[in-house]
Amino acid sequence: MKIITASELKSGMQLPEADGFLFDVIEVARETGKTITVRLASDFSSFKSHWTTNGGVLKTFRKSTKLYCAE
Rank of each mutant, 00 (worst) to 15 (best):
M1P: 13
K2W: 06
K2T: 08
K2A: 02
I3G: 03
I4F: 07
A6D: 02
A6F: 05
S7L: 10
E8W: 00
L9N: 00
L9T: 01
K10H: 09
S11K: 01
G12T: 08
G12N: 04
G12F: 06
G12S: 04
M13A: 01
Q14V: 07
L15R: 01
P16V: 05
P16H: 00
P16N: 03
E17L: 15
E17D: 13
A18R: 10
D19Y: 10
G20H: 04
L22K: 07
L22N: 06
D24A: 14
V25L: 00
I26P: 10
I26Y: 04
E27K: 01
V28L: 02
R30K: 14
R30S: 14
E31Q: 01
T32L: 02
G33A: 05
G33E: 09
G33P: 09
K34L: 12
K34W: 10
T35H: 00
T35N: 05
T35K: 03
T35S: 03
T35Q: 06
I36R: 00
I36P: 08
I36D: 04
I36H: 03
I36A: 01
I36K: 01
T37I: 09
R39Y: 09
R39G: 08
R39W: 09
L40E: 04
A41Y: 02
A41W: 01
A41Q: 03
A41E: 01
A41F: 07
S42D: 00
S42L: 04
F44H: 08
F44K: 07
F44I: 13
S45V: 11
S45F: 11
S46G: 12
S46P: 15
F47M: 14
F47P: 12
K48F: 11
K48R: 10
H50G: 03
W51F: 05
W51C: 04
T52K: 02
T52F: 05
T52V: 11
T53C: 14
N54L: 14
G55A: 05
G55S: 06
L58Y: 03
L58N: 04
K59R: 13
K59G: 09
K59Y: 13
T60G: 01
R62Y: 15
R62H: 15
R62M: 15
K63F: 15
T65H: 10
T65Y: 10
K66T: 15
K66F: 15
L67Y: 13
Y68C: 12
A70L: 13
A70I: 11
